[in-house]
Deep mutational scan, measured.
Amino acid sequence: KYKEAKESFQRFLENHEKMTSTTRYKKAEQMFGEMEVWNAISERDRLEIYEDVL
């Protein structure tokens, strides 16, 4: 289930129109921090996936 959450988060970042190569992690956290997809995984994993996607 956790792996699915990580994959969902990656797809979310890859497909969200507001995500560009210039979007900083903290800005994304402000935009999406309340969303379930954002909070479903640990911050360490979130940051790792974020850096992989951008």
Rank of each mutant, 00 (worst) to 15 (best):
K3R: 07
K27L: 12
Y25S: 05
S8I: 13
E36T: 10
Q30T: 11
V53D: 14
E51L: 05
T20P: 02
Y2C: 01
E14L: 14
Y25I: 04
M19E: 08
L13F: 02
M35F: 12
E48R: 13
F9L: 10
L13G: 05
S42M: 09
E29K: 04
I49T: 14
A28N: 01
R44Q: 15
F32R: 05
K18E: 13
F9G: 09
T22V: 11
G33W: 00
Y50T: 10
D45M: 00
M31W: 10
K6L: 11
T23G: 04
M31C: 00
S42Y: 01
K3S: 04
E34A: 11
Y25M: 04
E48F: 02
E7P: 00
L13D: 10
D52V: 09
K6T: 03
E36V: 10
F9P: 10
Y50P: 10
V37R: 00
E34M: 11
K27N: 10
M35Q: 11
I41K: 07
L47A: 01
G33R: 06
F12N: 09
D52L: 10
Q30D: 11
E36N: 08
A28H: 01
K18C: 13
A28M: 07
K26H: 11
E7R: 10
T22C: 12
M31K: 05
Q30V: 12
W38E: 08
T23A: 06
K27H: 13
G33Q: 06
E51H: 15
Q10S: 08
D52R: 15
S42N: 08
S42L: 09
M31Y: 04
S42P: 06
T23I: 08
F32A: 11
A5S: 12
E51Y: 14
A40V: 04
S8A: 15
E36M: 03
T22Q: 14
E51N: 13
M19L: 12
K27M: 12
V37G: 01
F12E: 08
T23N: 01
A28F: 04
A28P: 05
E29R: 04
T20N: 13
Y50M: 09
E48S: 13
S8V: 12
A5K: 13
H16V: 07
E7K: 12
Y50D: 03
R24Q: 11
R24T: 15
E43W: 04
M35P: 05
Q10A: 14
K18Q: 09
L47H: 10
S8N: 10
E4R: 08
Y25Q: 00
D52T: 15
R46M: 00
R24Y: 10
K3F: 00
S21D: 12
K27G: 07
F32V: 04
M19I: 15
Y2F: 13
G33Y: 02
F32N: 02
S8T: 11
E29Q: 08
S42I: 05
S42R: 09
I49D: 07
N39D: 02
R46S: 03
A40G: 11
S21V: 11
R44S: 14
S42D: 06
T22P: 08
I41M: 05
Y25T: 09
F12S: 07
T22M: 11
E7H: 07
S21P: 15
E34V: 01
D45R: 01
F9S: 07
E48M: 14
E29H: 00
T20K: 08
L13M: 08
I41H: 06
L47N: 09
K26W: 09
K26E: 15
K27D: 15
W38C: 11
V53M: 03
E34I: 01
Y2H: 00
K6V: 07
F9V: 02
I41T: 04
I41G: 06
E14P: 03
I41N: 04
R46T: 00
V37P: 12
M31T: 03
R46Q: 00
I41Y: 00
L47R: 14
K1L: 02
E17K: 11
R46F: 02
Q30G: 08
D52I: 00
A28K: 05
Y25E: 01
Y2N: 12
M19G: 05
S8F: 05
N39I: 00
I49G: 03
R44F: 13
E4H: 11
T22S: 11
Y2P: 03
E7F: 07
Y25W: 01
R44G: 12
E51V: 04
K6E: 04
G33T: 02
E7T: 08
K3M: 04
L47T: 12
A40C: 09
K18R: 11
D52C: 08
A5Y: 08
E7G: 05
R46H: 00
K18G: 11
Q10V: 11
E7L: 13
T23K: 05
L13T: 03
S21F: 06
V53K: 08
M19K: 06
R44C: 09
E36C: 04
D52M: 15
F32S: 06
F32L: 04
L47M: 14
I41V: 15
T22K: 12
R24P: 15
I41D: 09
R44L: 08
A5C: 10
H16D: 10
Y25R: 02
F32Q: 07
E34N: 15
Q10W: 09
M35G: 06
I41C: 06
S8Q: 14
M19C: 09
E29Y: 00
Y25V: 05
E36I: 01
E29W: 00
E4L: 11
Q30K: 11
R44Y: 13
D52Y: 14
E4Q: 12
E14D: 05
E48I: 12
G33V: 01
Y2I: 12
Y2D: 11
A40S: 12
K6I: 06
A40N: 12
A5G: 07
K27R: 12
Q30W: 04
R44V: 13
V53Y: 15
K27C: 14
K1H: 15
A5D: 13
F12Y: 10
I49W: 01
Y2V: 05
E43Q: 09
K18N: 13
T20Q: 10
L47K: 13
Q30P: 01
L13R: 03
N39G: 06
T20S: 10
K1A: 00
R11A: 07
F9E: 10
D52G: 12
G33K: 13
K18V: 09
K18W: 10
E4G: 07
E14A: 13
T23R: 02
E34K: 14
K6C: 12
S42Q: 08
Y25C: 02
Q30F: 03
E17A: 10
M31L: 10
E14Y: 02
T23V: 10
W38I: 03
F9R: 03
M31H: 03
V37E: 14
D45Y: 02
M35I: 03
E36K: 08
F32M: 02
G33P: 02
K18I: 03
M31F: 00
R44K: 15
T20E: 08
E48A: 11
K1G: 02
K3N: 09
R11I: 07
I41L: 12
E34W: 04
E7C: 06
L13W: 01
M19V: 15
E34P: 04
E48N: 06
E36F: 00
T20W: 07
R46P: 02
F9M: 03
E14H: 08
E29L: 03
A28L: 10
E4A: 08
H16Q: 12
A40W: 11
L13Y: 02
Q30E: 15
A5E: 09
K6W: 01
